[in-house]
Design a protein around this nucleic acid. Structure first.
Lengths: 156, 156
DNA sequence: CGGTATCCGCTGCGATACTG
DNA sequence: CAGTATCGCAGCGGATACCG
């Protein structure tokens, strides 16, 4: 697994467990800014993932079974879905419930923590709908430019 | 580059350019839900990345030079920084300005689009600060459980 | 300073097969 | 149904060298 056995690099600043991965440059960073930056990093490692975001959104209205999730997130493989859900469970975002029936039934639902982040996802979703077109337009324009003019290089 | 040459899978639904990658299951999805899901996916491909998020946050207060960004995002390699910035430029999130001086000076700043998403990042950051501890606690608890009891398997 | 070019190890992920 | 196990490859990210 990912979180076990934390290798500590030289020059790191092991005040908190989740800081050990980042070098401390006391000159440029206040301890406060340092903590803030690291909190963000930790969380981003957990959330900044396409499937994770889509899962949080998918589970927003209540528990869903594994198979339903797989169909809702069309395109995800069983392996990726299992993995992603496992990590989210470990991070306390989702709760996994096994019903000992035949055939087996496993439900996933957002925890309180998960629900508290679902709001952010809602924001991302709204922003997406409002701005996808701008992104796509920008891409086309960029690709067009790239074809014609050579890219401006930092030369005198 | 990533966006050029879009391979179209069988059974896809090429109404819009950004939909070609996803299968259409007209039974379960309304066209509206379909568009919404795809908008999110497109945007998540662009934003759901640790460095991208951190860069948007780093640039929130104005333009910064390449070297400054590299130091701010301590831990990123030059290659990754260049790559990430290039993708963000292509997506219209950041603007790259080359000043033909010696030594060369290249500044990156958020576009209007980029600034409009910076608000979301602010939210993520705030959430991070409030909830990192819960995530870390959940992880420790999970790892402890995993050591002791075997994982509940879906069996009758 | 701000890149590009190249090599390269690792692993993330898909595909496939099997199971309680 | 909801997984686990295994293989195999592409691609990402790091390290290094070089350039305008």
């Amino acid at each position: 697994m990912k979180g076990t056995g934390i290798p500590r690099k030289e020059g790191t600043f092991p005040i908190y467990r989740y800081l050990v991965d980042t070098k401390c440059d006391a000159g440029n960073w206040s301890v406060d800014a340092y903590l803030r930056g690291c909190a963000s990093r930790t969380v981003l490692e957990a959330l900044a993932n396409k499937w994770t975001c889509l899962l949080i959104d998918a589970l927003r209205h209540g528990p869903l079974r594994f198979g339903v999730l797989r169909r809702k997130l069309d395109g995800i493989t069983q392996k990726s879905l299992t993995q992603t859900l496992r990590v989210m469970e470990r991070d306390g975002i989702v709760i996994r419930t096994v019903y000992p029936t035949i055939p087996p039934r496993v439900e996933y639902e957002l925890s309180d923590l998960g629900r508290s982040v679902a709001g952010l996802m809602e924001g991302v979703k709204r922003w997406s709908e409002e701005h996808v077109d701008e992104i796509l337009t920008a891409r086309e324009a960029y690709d067009l430019r790239a074809q014609e003019e050579p890219r401006p290089v930092p030369v005198a």
